[in-house]
């Protein structure tokens, strides 16, 4: 029990207290300590990333091996990953000059980039469709939401300046309204949320330091 639970909690408290205290000490040694600890965390983070890659690979290999539902699609994950690793390792060992065709780079440029860029752009259609179907000024609050959205959407595209000049004889008229929304009510709310988030993060950190919050230890004992 001591090794599995008490000692990790003691480490959290000790290292957390050191991090906290050293932040207030303007001595160069404190700065060195912070810098050294940050280096440690970066190295440990590298191992953590390896763990992430391994876990994801393992999950898909297990799905293929056990022929679980949709295992055929996992084959494509496997092909993609192995293909990239093989070309990457080849490039590292043999070396790829600027004139050679780097298949690792090619896979990134023509598979990862277009797929990554497209998958999020699909949301443009969903957002538009959802706005059309559900955005209704049914009450005061919904009306404010709708009004602010419409003004900001319009006030952030160049055409609003032409319309402003034509209707109000001031090209910046609509832009100024959009700016006012962003600079006052939006700012007020975001600041309120920041204060709330900040207080919550501090409370959570204190809970972690004092061992009240210990879900990071995992289950069991």
């Amino acid at each position: 029990m001591f090794l599995k639970r008490t000692l990790p909690l003691l480490i959290v408290f000790t290292i957390g207290s050191l991090a906290f205290v050293h932040d207030f000490i303007p001595h160069p040694l404190s700065g060195e300590f912070r810098s050294e600890m940050a280096s440690w965390m970066m190295i440990i983070g590298g191992f953590g990333m390896f763990l992430g890659v391994y876990s994801l690979m393992h999950m898909h290999i297990t799905r293929i091996r056990q022929k679980m539902a949709g295992w055929g699609y996992s084959v494509f994950v496997f092909i993609g990953a192995v293909g990239m690793i093989a070309t990457g390792v080849y490039g590292d060992i043999v070396g790829v000059s600027k004139d050679d065709i780097d298949l690792f780079d090619w896979g990134y440029k023509y598979i990862q980039v277009p797929c990554g860029a497209t998958i999020f752009s699909i949301l443009a259609f969903f957002v538009a469709s959802a706005a059309f179907r559900t955005f209704r000024a049914k009450n005061m609050a919904a009306g404010l939401l709708l009004g602010a959205a419409v003004i900001v959407m319009f006030g952030r595209v160049p055409i609003c300046e032409a319309v402003g000049g034509w209707v109000f004889n001031d090209r910046q008229a609509i832009v100024n309204v959009a700016n006012a929304i962003m600079n006052y009510p939006n700012l007020a709310v975001k600041r309120g949320l920041l204060l709330g988030i900040g207080l919550a993060a501090i409370a959570q950190s204190v809970r972690v330091l004092f061992g009240v919050e210990r879900t990071y230890l995992g289950g069991a004992d």
Binding site: A131, F135, A137, L146, V150, F154, V157
Partner: peptide
């Protein structure tokens, strides 16, 4: 230009749906 056009379309769709309501 595309951004302007698409924003106007969405605004018109939303306002149209509200007028309908």
């Amino acid at each position: 230009l595309a951004q302007s056009a698409a924003h106007i379309i969405i605004i018109l769709l939303v306002l149209g749906a509200n007028v309908h309501m």
